[in-house]
C-alpha cells in the first residue's frame, strides 16, 4: 500500500512524510526506474532522474542520499512486488505440480511487466557493489525457500540446490525470451512456466512440442 522508506535519507527523528511528500517520493522512484531502464545504472545521473520526475535537485535529496540510495529503494520495492505475487498465487494451491507452475508463471509475468528493469539487474545488478548483490541474494534466498517445500513434495531431495537451479533456469529463460530469442516464436508466461516445470521435474525430453497454449494442461 505504501513504499518502504527504510532506505531513504530521512532519519527516524524527522517528522513523518506528508501526503504531498509521499507522492513526490513515489514520483522520484517511478522516474528512477524509467531512467535506470533506459540508461543503465552507471549511465544514470541524479539530474536525469529529477528531470524525468519534473522535480528539483533539492527535492531528490529530501528523500534519498544519492543514486545508490534510490536504486536500493527501487530494488526493495520491486522485490516486494515479486515476492507477494509468488506467495499469493501459490498459497492455496494444493497440487504441488500446479503450485510450481503457478509460482513460475508469476515470475514470468513479473518479468513480462518489467523486462527492462529485470534486464538491468541481470546485466548490471551484481556488478554495482556488494550491497546490491546482498539485496539480490536475499531475494533469491527468499524465493528459493518458497519453492523448496513444493520441490520436496515433488520428490526432490536436494531441495536447496534444486530451488536455486530452478531460479537460474527461470531467469535465463525469461532473459532469452525477451532479449536473446531470434527466430523462435514468442512464448507466454504460462507456456514458459509449463516448459520450465516440465524440464525441471520430468526432464528435457518431456517438454511438449508444440507448447500448449496459455492455460494448457499439465504434462
Amino acid at each position: 500500500m505504501v513504499t518502504d522508506v527504510s532506505v531513504s535519507s530521512r532519519t527516524a527523528s524527522e517528522s513523518p512524510l506528508t501526503e504531498r511528500q509521499w507522492v513526490r517520493r513515489g514520483e522520484l522512484l517511478e522516474a528512477a526506474r524509467r531512467v535506470f531502464e533506459r540508461d543503465g545504472y552507471h549511465g544514470t545521473t541524479v539530474s536525469a532522474v529529477v528531470q524525468a520526475a519534473g522535480l528539483s535537485q533539492g527535492a531528490f535529496y529530501l528523500y534519498f542520499t544519492d543514486k545508490k540510495g534510490i536504486f536500493a529503494a527501487l530494488q526493495d520495492e520491486m522485490a516486494t512486488l515479486l515476492r507477494r505475487r509468488i506467495y499469493w498465487v501459490t498459497r492455496d494451491e494444493l497440487d504441488a505440480r500446479r503450485r510450481l507452475e503457478a509460482g513460475l508463471r508469476a515470475y514470468f509475468e513479473f518479468y513480462d511487466e518489467y523486462p527492462a528493469y529485470n534486464r538491468r539487474l541481470t546485466i548490471e545488478g551484481l556488478g554495482i557493489d556488494g550491497s546490491f548483490e546482498a539485496r539480490q541474494t536475499e531475494l533469491h534466498q527468499t524465493l528459493a525457500a518458497a519453492f523448496e517445500p513444493t520441490l520436496r513434495e515433488l520428490g526432490v531431495r536436494a531441495t536447496t540446490v534444486a530451488a536455486f537451479a530452478l531460479l537460474g533456469l527461470a531467469a535465463q529463460l525469461a532473459y532469452w525470451q525477451h532479449f536473446q530469442r531470434q527466430h523462435e516464436p514468442s512464448m507466454s508466461a504460462a507456456q514458459l512456466a509449463h516448459a520450465c516445470a516440465s524440464l525441471f521435474v520430468d526432464g528435457a525430453g518431456s517438454i511438449p512440442t508444440p507448447l500448449p497454449q496459455e492455460g494448457g494442461t499439465h504434462a
Binding site: 505504501v2 513523518p16 506528508t18 509521499w22 513515489g26 517511478e30 505475487r85 498465487v89
Partner: peptide, 25 residues
Amino acid sequence: TGKLNPVTAFMQQKLKVKGDMGLAM
C-alpha cells in the same frame, strides 16, 4: 498481492490515505 505497485496506485489515486501518513508507512 503484488500485482499493482502501491506507489503507482497512490499516484493514480487508486489508493488514498487519510490521517497519519507516517503510520501508513
